[in-house]
Write a protein that binds this DNA or RNA. Sequence first.
DNA 1: ATGTTTTATCGTGTTTTAACGATAAATAAA
DNA 2: TTTATTTATCGTTAAAACACGATAAAACAT
Lengths: 109, 109
Amino acid sequence: MDKCHCDPSEKYDSISTGSKEKNRELALLCKALAHPARVQILKLLVRKQSCICGEIVDQIEDLAQSTVSQHLKILKDTGLIRGEIEGTAVCYCIEPSGLRRLRVLIADI
Amino acid sequence: MDKCHCDPSEKYDSISTGSKEKNRELALLCKALAHPARVQILKLLVRKQSCICGEIVDQIEDLAQSTVSQHLKILKDTGLIRGEIEGTAVCYCIEPSGLRRLRVLIADI
DNA sequence: ATGTTTTATCGTGTTTTAACGATAAATAAA
DNA sequence: TTTATTTATCGTTAAAACACGATAAAACAT
């Protein structure tokens, strides 16, 4: 609860808020994690370092299969996970570069 | 592009994806950053360690004053920034605990 | 007291997200 | 070949996000 005073000596022009592109990129990654189910899926895949097939659907309780499938698609399109067809099932796993990128951009804030 | 095989030996029950509450919390923080303008505002306030009054509106080009105000409100409600009335202006600054929390939860993934 | 500046809020329209059931597509099993 | 299993996609509905102009509220200046 400390005070908060403006310092007019600092010029705004001299402050870079990073490239527009990076901001957009971070916003997209964050949007992908802007839903509890997607956070849960990502964590699940991080912890089970080998990948998980469709039982993700069972883990995410209270959501229909089609809904979970949508969430998986969002994570995949954002580059945070990867899916590979394994017979009749599909095997999802972390896309490490995506997660790394997220961490870098967050650190950049 | 390495292979991706399921390991049926790992039991899903034994894997914790963190408390539902934490997942929800991270999702909310991420949602707050799920828009480029909000990312930009946050970065601006981090870099200018003393706070900035309404010129944020000028920095965020192409958005109306009322829209920027909405974004500021979202960041404030999420606990990432703080606003304090300073005469007729309002002075925004980072809420360090919020950003710290975000970093912790991201690291937790 | 009156007018000006700054910011928040309201009302509105548009777009995007979220969720579901139903169904299609692909493979495996019978 | 037929049937079952698994997953993605389609169509729909409801809710939330986004953006804007207009306006209200508060403090300052005249």
